[in-house]
Design a protein around this nucleic acid. Structure first.
Length: 203
DNA sequence: AACGTGATCTTA
DNA sequence: AAGATCACGTTA
């Protein structure tokens, strides 16, 4: 398994990432919740909710690059969130990592997240996931399959999880591009964006 | 339902 | 230059 296995569409990549093992600075975790994101209107997967929708810019350029890289962005001024870039070089698509089960390095994860959080909450939510694994904006663009990289990914079997709408997006709010492995308390509850149009009125 | 928080983007 | 937006998380 290598970055070539991610040269696929974002929905397939999302399924491939369910159950994958993510390692970040002393913590390894199993990915249990992801969201697929596409690209501009004239690309293969038009997606108004994607950062890449309006073409490459300073923030999102990694999304347009080769697969197997990490795309990080800062959200709401506070949190760092992480995506795995998929599709061919030059085509924008990525999968947001929303939740994971911490397998090893629990003490490290707890020291980063604070002793008060429950074990199932260590990497619950995209911001918390990055916090638990020590992922920062400096990791933007890093090669997840380079053994020297501080953040690495090991792909497993293709898993088909449950699917539903993405959390918190105001565009394409009904599109069922969030996927998760059922039965894990790490998976976030669904929250529709208050700015999204009523269900059924969005593409 | 509200809000803290700041980078990024759109609009002018 | 100004204003809106936001792939969040916590508290209520």
């Amino acid at each position: 398994m290598s970055s070539a296995d991610l040269e696929i569409d974002p929905l397939s990549a999302a399924r491939l990432l369910l159950g994958a093992e993510l390692t970040g600075r002393g913590v390894t975790a199993t990915v249990v919740e992801v969201e697929a994101y596409g690209g501009p209107a004239d690309g293969p997967w038009p997606d108004a909710a994607a950062h890449s929708y309006r073409g490459p810019g300073l923030r999102n350029s990694v999304m347009f690059g080769p697969p197997g890289r990490l795309y990080t962005y800062r959200s709401h001024g506070i949190h760092v969130c992480a995506n795995v870039v998929c599709a061919s070089d030059g085509v924008a698509a990525a999968v947001l990592l929303r939740a994971a089960v911490v397998d090893t390095g629990l003490d490290v994860a707890w020291s980063r997240r604070g002793a008060a959080v429950r074990e199932s909450g260590l990497a619950r939510g995209p911001g918390n996931l990055c916090s638990a694994l020590g992922i920062t904006m400096d990791d933007n663009g890093t090669d997840l399959f380079d053994p020297r990289s501080p953040v690495r990914l090991r792909l497993g079997e293709l898993r088909v999880g449950d699917a539903g709408p993405r959390v918190g997006v105001s565009k394409a709010a009904d599109r069922p591009w969030r996927m998760w492995l059922p039965g894990h308390p790490e998976v976030s509850a669904y929250r529709r964006s208050p700015r999204a149009p009523a269900p059924g009125e969005s593409d």
